[in-house]
């Protein structure tokens, strides 16, 4: 009897701390909503569809920021995904055993570099480089909306490039895990049917498809939320444009830049409402990604096929 009351105390005690973690997440959503009420009630849905951002007259519309965030993240994804997958495939399928750990470590190192260092490098090294690229763009191309704009260096292109580099290690390491978890019997089946190495790899990728999509989405979530590196190279000018060259603005960047400048409550609430949307989007993307990865892992650990004890590589 004493034993079980000890147990209960322990369980409740530690559970309380666990509940705190839960409360924090819920609290964030709650607090963000509460602190943006003024803006929510004043602008309603219009907030998401209008482009005026005028602190002076108190008129706020967040469309350019949403655009900038999504555009930069999608571009980053387009650039980063093939490379991240290529790395994952190389490390888990192609590279000699000895190289695996060091290569994995090097790619993980990319993830360890702080955002501010990326930003610093972005401002002083990448932006001049991008400016040279922009200047060198042939006039024929400059007619297209994609390439219209002053060759400042800062702009969507620089932001997309830097985001891509930052996203690569995240997608890559998860994809690597997924591929490691694909049972070797799948590749064996392909080889036994006369597949080339790449064809056997394709079979493995096909098996891990949902997990790999999850890995890509994880990178997407990361790109959506990145603040400092982006704001240092994107130009911070709110406009909705398809141009890669024109400076634009993201949700995270505008919050970082204007939060402490916000003179009145409405301004602040508008900024926090942007934060709320960012929260909702990134949490949503993350949840979908984790679901995909989890469902994939489950298929491997408890396959429907005849069970064989496979080493669990969690």
């Amino acid at each position: 009897m004493r034993r079980s009351s000890d147990d209960r105390k322990f369980r409740l005690g530690t559970g309380a701390f666990a509940a705190v973690v839960l409360l924090i997440v819920v609290g964030i959503g709650f607090e963000l909503t509460r602190q943006s009420m003024l803006s929510i009630t004043k602008f309603g849905l219009k907030f998401w569809t209008t482009s005026t951002w005028d602190p002076v007259s108190g008129d706020f519309g967040a469309l350019p920021f949403i655009w900038g965030t999504l555009y930069s993240a999608i571009l980053a994804l387009l650039l980063a995904t093939p490379i991240a997958l290529g790395i994952a495939i190389f490390i888990s399928e192609l590279s000699p055993r000895m190289l695996r750990q060091p290569l994995a470590y090097l790619t993980d190192l990319l993830a360890a570099i702080p955002s501010i260092v990326y930003g610093l490098w972005g401002v002083f090294v990448m932006v001049p480089f991008v400016r040279k690229l922009e200047v060198a763009t042939p006039d024929a191309l400059k007619q297209f909306p994609l390439f219209k704009g002053p060759p400042l260096g800062v702009g969507m292109l620089a932001a997309a490039l830097i985001l891509a580099v930052m996203v690569i290690p995240f997608s890559s390491s998860v994809a690597r895990e997924i591929l490691k978890n694909v049972p070797s019997t799948q590749r064996e089946a392909a080889y036994a049917l006369g597949a080339t190495r790449w064809e056997a790899i394709k079979v493995a990728i096909g098996f891990g498809k949902s997990g790999i999509i999850g890995a890509v989405m994880l990178g997407f979530g990361r790109a959506l939320g990145e603040t400092i590196a982006v704001t240092m190279v994107i130009g911070n000018s709110p406009q909705v444009t398809a141009s890669l060259f024109k400076p634009q603005y993201t949700m995270a960047a505008v919050i970082a830049n204007e939060f402490t400048e916000a003179a009145d409550e409405l301004y602040l609430h508008a900024l926090i409402e942007i934060g709320l949307l960012l929260f909702i989007i990134t949490v949503g993307v993350n949840m979908i990604s984790r679901l995909l990865i989890w469902s994939m892992k489950r298929r491997v650990v408890a396959p429907i096929v005849v069970p064989v004890i496979e080493e669990a590589t969690a």
Binding site: G15, A18, V21, V25, V26, L32, G275
Partner: peptide
Amino acid sequence: KFSSVVRFAADVLNGVPSIVVGIFAYGL
């Protein structure tokens, strides 16, 4: 079930952009 929910919440918290966490700390 509680543990699964908490684990999930921790994962969610991991993915929240740091600036949003900053706003939360600001409010708190």
